[in-house]
């Protein structure tokens, strides 16, 4: 589905990503774990098209998307739940959802709307509220719901757990787990290794812009470096 090959990204003279290679298979959920400043956001921005890599390739379904602007990548089936939710705060929950399906037909909009309301009943209750009046957890849910409205084939989720209470983190990860079971391909970029490893098929560890480890959750949980750095020993 998504193949990233030897990606190099520089910000001025800072080498943000070094030869990063990773892939997400059809209906697979993959996590990229790493601390603050490891290059996780840069990776997401490269896939979306906000950052221009200096080397390497990003291939979606066999097509090089390197030169495409973000909205054309969305057209090809990528959707993003951005870091910090980035909702359209002055617009209603309903409008945010409609905008998520901006490029889709009315039928898909209707169908996806039902799907996300079933997934997040609280959004159905609050559909006429302004997005900015939602609580932090609800905003994260709306952010994921908005991304799902386009019926994406690849869902990018950027730091969904950040700033959420543990109980809400669990709830959001439950939703990710359900999406994975429904066959959505997911690339999850996270600091919270503990919860992430419960819901993904594979994971990569990113450190200082390099992929230093790759494996199944079981393998990574056994790795002493992961235990020390991300799972609290």
């Amino acid at each position: 589905m998504l193949i990233i090959n030897e990606l190099d990204v520089y910000y001025n003279h800072i080498h943000a990503l070094h030869q990063v290679s990773l892939n997400v298979g059809e209906s697979e959920a993959v996590a990229v774990l790493g601390a603050n400043g490891a290059g996780k956001s840069t990776l997401i921005k490269s896939v979306m098209g906000w950052v221009k890599p200096q080397g390497g390739s990003i291939v979606l379904d066999g097509e090089e998307i390197h030169a495409l602007p973000p909205w054309e990548r969305v057209q090809r089936g990528i959707a993003l739940a951005p870091e910090g939710a980035r909702l359209f705060g002055d617009l209603s929950v309903e409008a945010n959802l409609r905008l998520g399906g901006y490029l889709q037909s009315e039928e898909i909009l209707r169908a996806q709307r039902e799907t996300v309301f079933e997934l997040f009943p609280v959004l159905a209750e609050r559909r006429n509220q302004l997005a900015k009046t939602l609580s932090g957890g609800e905003q994260q849910m709306l952010s994921i719901a908005r991304a799902l409205m386009s019926r994406p084939r690849l869902l990018l989720i950027d730091e969904v757990s950040m700033g959420l209470m543990p109980i809400l983190v669990k709830r959001v990860f439950n939703v990710i787990d359900r999406l994975r079971r429904q066959g959505v391909s997911i690339l999850l970029v996270e600091q919270n290794a503990y919860e992430s490893l419960k819901v993904v098929d594979r994971a990569y560890v990113l450190e200082n812009g390099r992929i230093v480890l790759e494996g199944t959750p079981a393998e990574l949980r056994e790795d002493p470096r992961v235990r020390a750095a991300y799972l609290g020993g």
């Binding site: 098209g49 602007p69 973000p70 951005p82 909702l87 359209f88 002055d90 905008l99 991304a147």
Partner: peptide, 19 residues
């Protein structure tokens, strides 16, 4: 609605597919 998204958050607008 698309113009609104451009005003509120250009990156978020692009992320939902608004050119």
């Amino acid at each position: 609605l698309a113009l609104n998204t451009v005003r509120i958050d250009e990156e978020a607008a692009e992320a939902v597919g608004v050119s």
